Measured scan of single mutants.
Amino acid sequence: MTEYKLVVVGAGGVGKSALTIQLIQNHFVDEYDPTIEDSYRKQVVIDGETCLLDILDTAGQEEYSAMRDQYMRTGEGFLCVFAINNTKSFEDIHHYREQIKRVKDSEDVPMVLVGNKCDLPSRTVDTKQAQDLARSYGIPFIETSAKTRQGVDDAFYTLVREIRKHKEKMSKDGKKKKKKSKTKCVIM
Rank of each mutant, 00 (worst) to 15 (best):
P121S: 13
L120H: 09
F82T: 11
Q43M: 03
K42H: 07
L6S: 00
T158G: 05
E3H: 11
V125D: 11
H94D: 14
T158W: 03
Y96E: 01
G48M: 02
M170F: 07
T144A: 04
P110M: 02
V7C: 12
E62V: 09
K104A: 06
A59P: 12
A18I: 03
F141R: 02
V44P: 09
A130F: 14
V8C: 04
A134D: 03
R161A: 06
Q43V: 06
Q150P: 03
Q150F: 13
K16G: 07
E76H: 14
Y4K: 05
K167C: 03
E76K: 07
R68N: 15
D173I: 03
R161L: 02
H94S: 07
V186W: 04
K180R: 10
V9R: 00
D154Q: 13
V186N: 15
A59S: 13
I55Q: 07
G15W: 00
Y137D: 04
L120K: 04
A66V: 12
K169N: 11
V14W: 00
L120N: 03
E63I: 01
I36V: 10
Y137L: 14
T127H: 13
K128V: 13
C185F: 03
K179V: 14
R161P: 00
V29E: 12
V112F: 02
A59T: 13
P121F: 09
V81A: 04
M170K: 11
L56E: 13
Y64H: 13
T20R: 11
E49Y: 02
S145D: 14
D69S: 04
V29H: 10
H95V: 04
D153C: 14
Q129D: 05
V152D: 04
T20W: 09
H95A: 06
K165R: 05
A134Q: 02
V9C: 10
Y157S: 15
D154V: 08
L6Q: 00
S106Y: 10
L79D: 00
L19D: 04
L19A: 11
R41D: 09
K128S: 14
N116L: 15
S65N: 14
I187L: 15
V103Y: 15
G10D: 00
I93V: 10
I46R: 03
Q61D: 12
D119Q: 01
K182A: 15
G10R: 00
S39E: 10
F28V: 10
I163K: 09
Q43D: 09
T87W: 04
S39I: 06
R164I: 08
E162Y: 02
D30C: 08
K165A: 08
R73I: 04
E162P: 00
Y40F: 10
R73F: 03
D108R: 04
V103T: 02
A11L: 13
V109E: 01
H95T: 02
V186Q: 14
K184V: 00
M67V: 09
D132R: 07
D173E: 14
K5R: 08
V125F: 11
P121R: 10
D119R: 00
D126L: 07
G138Y: 01
R68F: 04
K165D: 06
G115D: 01
R73C: 09
V109T: 02
L120Q: 12
I46M: 05
G151C: 11
G77E: 00
T58H: 10
E3I: 06
T2Y: 04
T20A: 12
K147L: 13
M188A: 15
E49Q: 10
K184I: 01
S181V: 03
V112K: 00
D38M: 05
V125Y: 10
V8W: 01
T20H: 09
R41S: 10
P140T: 11
L56I: 08
V44G: 09
K169V: 13
N86Y: 03
G13W: 03
T74D: 15
V45N: 06
S136T: 14
L19R: 00
R164W: 08
K16P: 00
T74G: 12
T74A: 13
A146I: 02
Y96V: 12
K128E: 13
E63V: 04
V81I: 07
V9D: 04
E168A: 10
M67W: 03
F82H: 06
D105N: 15
D38A: 06
E91A: 04
K5N: 09
A134V: 02
L56G: 13
I187A: 15
F141Y: 07
D57R: 04
V7G: 03
D108G: 06
K16H: 01
Q61N: 08
K182I: 02
R135E: 12
C185Q: 15
Y71G: 12
S122Y: 09
I142V: 11
V109Y: 06
V81Q: 02
T158E: 09
C185G: 15
K184L: 01
R164S: 10
S181F: 02
L79I: 12
K180D: 15
K169H: 08
Q25A: 05
V44T: 10
A59K: 08
E37M: 05
K176S: 09
M72P: 09
E168R: 06
H166G: 05
D38Y: 07
V45F: 08
T20Q: 09
L120M: 11
T144G: 12
A59L: 04
Y71V: 12
K147V: 12
V160P: 00
C185V: 02
E91T: 01
V109W: 03
T148G: 09
V14P: 05
M72V: 07
I93P: 03
P140L: 06
G75R: 06
C185W: 02
F90W: 12
D47G: 07
I100V: 03
E31D: 09
C80H: 02
Y4P: 02
R135S: 10
P110Q: 01
A66K: 06
K101I: 05
V125P: 09
G138L: 05
H166L: 09
S65H: 04
K175Q: 05
A134N: 03
D173N: 06
H27Q: 11
M170S: 05
G75E: 04
Y71C: 06
V103I: 09
A18K: 09
K184Q: 07
E168D: 11
V152R: 03
S181Y: 01
R161Q: 12
Y32N: 11
K117M: 15
T144Q: 14
F156L: 14
L19H: 11
C118I: 08
D126G: 11
V114S: 01
T183K: 11
G12I: 02
V7T: 14
H95L: 04
V44F: 06
F141A: 04
L6P: 02
V103F: 11
D47S: 04
K175R: 07
I142H: 03
E49F: 03
N116W: 00
Q43Y: 05
V8R: 00
F156D: 00
L19N: 10
A11Q: 08
Q43H: 10
Q22Y: 02
R73S: 12
K117T: 06
I187G: 15
F82P: 00
V103K: 04
Q61P: 11
I100Y: 00
K42D: 07
V114Y: 00
G15T: 00
K179R: 14
G15A: 00
K104Y: 13
D30A: 09
Y40C: 13
T124E: 14
C51R: 05
D105Q: 15
R123E: 14
D92W: 03
Y40R: 12
G174N: 06
C118E: 10
K165P: 01
A155K: 00
I55G: 08
H166S: 09
R149F: 12
F82V: 09
N116P: 00
K5M: 00
R68S: 12
D154S: 11
V109K: 01
Q22F: 02
Q70A: 04
I84N: 15
I46E: 02
H166I: 06
K128I: 11
K5Y: 00
N116Q: 14
D33N: 07
F82W: 05
K175T: 08
K16I: 04
Q150S: 03
S145C: 11
M67F: 07
L133S: 06
T127N: 11
E76V: 15
D38L: 05
